[in-house]
Amino acid sequence: MHKRLILIVDDEADLRAMMQEIFELSGYLVVTTCHGREALDYLMGAPRPHLILLDLTMPVMGGLAFLEELHCGDYPHLTSIPVVVISAVEQFVDLERFGCAGTLIKPASLDDILSTAWRAMERA
Rank of each mutant, 00 (worst) to 15 (best):
R123T: 07
D55F: 00
A13D: 09
Q91G: 14
M1D: 11
T116C: 13
T33D: 01
P107I: 08
V83R: 04
C72Q: 14
L110K: 04
L15V: 13
D10S: 06
L25F: 05
F23W: 06
S115N: 13
L110Q: 12
L67P: 12
Y28H: 12
I6N: 10
R16Q: 15
Y42S: 00
P76A: 12
M61N: 06
F92P: 02
V31Q: 08
L29R: 13
F66N: 01
L56G: 02
A124V: 00
A17Q: 14
E38M: 07
H50A: 15
M19P: 00
L7C: 09
E90Y: 01
R123D: 04
I105C: 06
Q20D: 10
L5Q: 15
Y75S: 04
V31H: 06
R37Q: 15
L25H: 05
L7E: 08
G27I: 06
D112H: 05
E12V: 12
S87G: 00
F66W: 09
M61T: 06
M19I: 07
C100V: 15
R37F: 07
A88G: 15
T103Q: 14
G99C: 05
L40K: 04
G36P: 02
C34A: 12
E21R: 12
A13S: 11
P82C: 08
R97V: 15
R37S: 03
R119I: 10
A101G: 13
H35P: 00
L29K: 13
F92R: 10
E21L: 12
S87P: 02
T57E: 00
D112A: 15
E24Y: 01
H71T: 11
V89C: 03
D11E: 06
P49E: 04
L15Y: 07
E38N: 04
L95E: 11
D41Y: 01
L70R: 08
E90T: 03
D41Q: 14
R4T: 02
H35Q: 03
D55M: 06
T33G: 01
R48Q: 10
P47Y: 02
L78M: 03
L114M: 14
E38L: 08
L40Y: 09
A46G: 11
G73R: 06
H50F: 03
L95G: 08
A120K: 07
L70I: 11
M61E: 04
A108V: 05
H50K: 11
E24H: 04
Q20E: 13
W118H: 14
L67V: 04
G27Y: 08
L104Q: 07
H50Q: 13
M1L: 12
L104C: 06
M44G: 14
L7W: 14
L25C: 01
L51C: 11
G45W: 08
F92H: 03
I113Q: 05
P107Y: 05
